[in-house]
């Protein structure tokens, strides 16, 4: 529900508040604050914002290979011949950015657009799983890294994919889990600490 009531607030402002509050993580108060900021700002800045929003809708497509958002199809990563023959599977496009920033992976990506979560109504058919299997059969990568989230839907998706991928003769791996860099051991939760211990390595 919008906090800008029609009658008290001019209709165009109320409309803007309503549209902004549809965005994830934006409540009615933040939407009102943003709407008044846009109202006070220059027309040029408002036009740039509107143009940028329309631009992403008009110019961004899903890459038909990895299903990441891109300006071209196939995306620059999928069409880069210097990339290694490994596929890193992630849940969302934002995960690609996070992983690529590490500089530790020079292969390609595959975006599932979610994780299997029956309680949220998401089964395997809603994700880009069939496309991944076809891609692995065709590209024959030397490794598939299952970098889904470390929660129950992410782990269940990784286990399910592992079962589908192993018969294809590809090496399937999962990123190591454990303690965060810079964290104190005594403040780690028991699940993370347990995983860190079971995944320990010999020095």
């Amino acid at each position: 529900m919008s906090s800008a009531r029609p009658g008290v607030t001019a209709r165009p402002v109320a409309n803007l508040v309503e549209e902004l509050s549809k965005l994830p993580g934006i409540g009615p108060k933040t939407a009102t604050r943003l709407a008044y900021h846009i109202l006070r700002d220059s027309r040029q800045n408002a036009a740039q914002l509107a143009e940028a929003i329309l631009d992403v809708k008009d110019r961004i497509v899903l890459c038909s290979v990895c299903f990441n958002f891109s300006e071209q199809n196939p995306c620059p990563v999928c069409s880069d011949p210097t990339r290694e023959a490994a596929i890193c599977v992630v849940e969302e496009p934002l995960d690609v950015q996070a992983l690529d920033r590490t500089g530790q992976f020079r292969g390609r990506y595959h975006v599932l657009h979610g994780a299997i979560s029956p309680i949220d109504g998401i089964g395997p058919g809603r994700l880009k799983i069939a496309e991944l299997i076809e891609r692995v059969k065709e590209e024959k990568p030397n490794e598939v890294i299952l970098a889904t989230n470390l929660d129950i839907p992410g782990d269940a998706t990784a286990t399910y994919l592992h079962r589908l991928l192993v018969p294809l003769g590809v090496t399937v791996s999962r990123p190591a889990t454990g303690l965060p860099a810079g964290g104190d051991l005594e403040y780690a939760d028991e699940v993370t600490l347990g995983r860190a211990l079971s995944g320990r390595r010999v020095l």
Binding site: P118, G121, I122, G123, Y160, R163
Partner: peptide, 19 residues
């Protein structure tokens, strides 16, 4: 119930009751 619908989908896709 949403989860029952997904359970049926999982069974159809995998052809099994216990995947």
């Amino acid at each position: 119930l949403t989860s029952l619908r997904v359970l049926r989908e999982i069974r159809e896709q995998t052809g099994s009751y216990s995947v």
